[in-house]
Simulated scan of single mutants.
Amino acid sequence: MEHICQHCRALLSSGIRSPYHLSISQLSNSELIKCDLCEAYLLREQGNTELLQAPSFTPSARDCTPSRVESSSLGHRH
């Protein structure tokens, strides 16, 4: 299981970005995103978003609760 914040969970499930999602690289049809809150790395390609890496989550004083996500629920393409 991976630990990600509620903002990353919303991005994975419905494509809703938050101010915590920083674009760190863009190519023609893909974007690498880092979450400034939980430090997860996500990849958006052709309308799909997948979790690349989620380090151990340490809750901060910010308004966020960690969410436990199983890799099978992330919609990985095979």
Rank of each mutant, 00 (worst) to 15 (best):
C8S: 09
Y20N: 13
E31I: 01
G75H: 01
C64M: 13
E31L: 11
Q6P: 06
S28W: 09
K34Q: 14
C5A: 08
L11R: 00
S14C: 09
S25Q: 10
R17M: 06
R9S: 07
E50A: 10
N48Q: 15
L11Y: 11
S23K: 11
R9Y: 14
S14E: 12
T65N: 13
L52N: 09
E31T: 09
M1W: 02
P19T: 12
A10S: 09
S28L: 05
A61T: 12
H21N: 02
R68A: 10
S25P: 05
R44M: 07
P59A: 11
M1A: 12
Y41S: 11
I33D: 00
L32H: 00
N29T: 02
D63W: 11
S14K: 12
K34L: 13
K34S: 08
N48T: 04
S25W: 01
R77L: 15
P55W: 05
F57H: 02
S28N: 08
T49W: 07
S23G: 04
Q46L: 04
E70D: 14
V69R: 07
C5W: 02
R17L: 10
H7S: 12
S60W: 03
T58P: 03
R44T: 11
A61W: 12
E50R: 15
H21R: 05
E50P: 06
G75F: 03
K34T: 04
C35F: 01
E39C: 08
I24A: 04
Q26D: 00
C5Q: 03
I16F: 05
S30L: 06
L43Y: 07
P55F: 08
Q53A: 15
M1Q: 10
L43I: 03
L37T: 11
Q53D: 08
L74H: 04
N29Y: 01
S67V: 15
H7Y: 15
Q46A: 11
L12H: 02
A61N: 14
S13F: 01
A61S: 14
G15S: 09
R9A: 07
L43V: 00
T49N: 08
L52W: 03
I24L: 12
L42V: 02
I24R: 11
M1R: 13
Q6S: 10
D63C: 10
P59L: 10
P19S: 13
H3P: 00
S30Y: 06
A54G: 07
A61V: 14
I24Q: 13
H21D: 04
P19Y: 02
L11P: 01
L42H: 00
S72T: 08
A54R: 06
L22S: 06
E2I: 06
L37H: 11
Q6N: 03
F57S: 02
L12C: 01
S14N: 04
